[in-house]
Amino acid sequence: MGLFGGGGTTTLRANSPAAEGSVHGDAAAWLGEYVSEETGGSIEIDAYRNSELGGQIESIENVSSGSLDMYVIPYALTGTQYQPAQVFDAPYLYDPDNPYEDIYEKTDPQDSEIAQQVIDDLVSETDIRSLGAVVQGTRRVTLNVNNEPPRNPEELSEYTMRAVPIAMYSEALKALGAQTTNIDFSEVPQALATGSIQGQENPYNIIRSSGIWENQNYILETNHMHSPLAVIMNEGVFQDLSESEQQVLYDGVREIQPRATETLESNLEGHKSFMRDNGLTIVPPEDLEMDAFRSAARSRIRSQFPDLIGTIEQLHGDGYPA
């Protein structure tokens, strides 16, 4: 934004913690292509990757204060500004048979009334607006297993795993049964190598790009979280746009959703065969006691987030039963 936007062009600066080649890293650039085309170049998006414009919490604060125009980040992290935004990351929230479409439907800031309510509150509390979401990938458990892989929460309780230091994530992992510990993400490979932890959970692309796979021999497809990536924007910057420009941004997110799904799905096969080729065993959901994982996760979320459970139930549509 600002002085050098001249000539009727608004240039929005977008940051992402991820690298090129992933949905997370490329979503802002895709959105930029669409928006530039639709507005005849009156809005451009400069997409920065690899946290070039700042770390995660910093970037969320920057979007809130207007120092950064846009950011692509899981909703759970905006929870550091406004806790209820974590509802979209609740474990086992979306339809396991059709998770991506379900995410798009339930997080849509225009059509889903519940999403609208959460986002309106987010805006009024933090000046952060969500334009909608793309999919990041499904979070799965990776482990070092000596004999038989654990198939239910009780068996998983014999493992110590690294938890992401965000309440929704770490509660979900505890619910899956694991002993959890907080260590910095940068230290995970080393902690796995030396056995001070035996596992962690992340989507396939991160398991691969961070090198975590080098120190693991099992992947359990617990599929506990289908994380939506919010495309967030500073409210002041958003309100400076015309109504039609705002609409183009909303439409743009919807427009790039199929591309995100496609990228994710086509990458997924590659990731899986890469893991198998490198000697990792993948345990599919059919071989896990998914009911046990799901009901443990949902009951723990129910007891740990009493203020949010109403919204989560509404989002789920069927009461989020244990």
């Binding site: 934004m1 600002g2 002085l3 050098f4 700042g54 770390g55 919490i57 910093e58 604060e61 920057n62 204060s65 207007g66 120092s67």
Partner: peptide, 16 residues
């Protein structure tokens, strides 16, 4: 010059 809000440098320094 870029029109950044005055919070920006404070956030950037504190978070680094």
């Amino acid at each position: 010059v870029e029109g950044q809000p005055v919070i920006f440098p404070a956030t950037n320094m504190m978070r680094s």
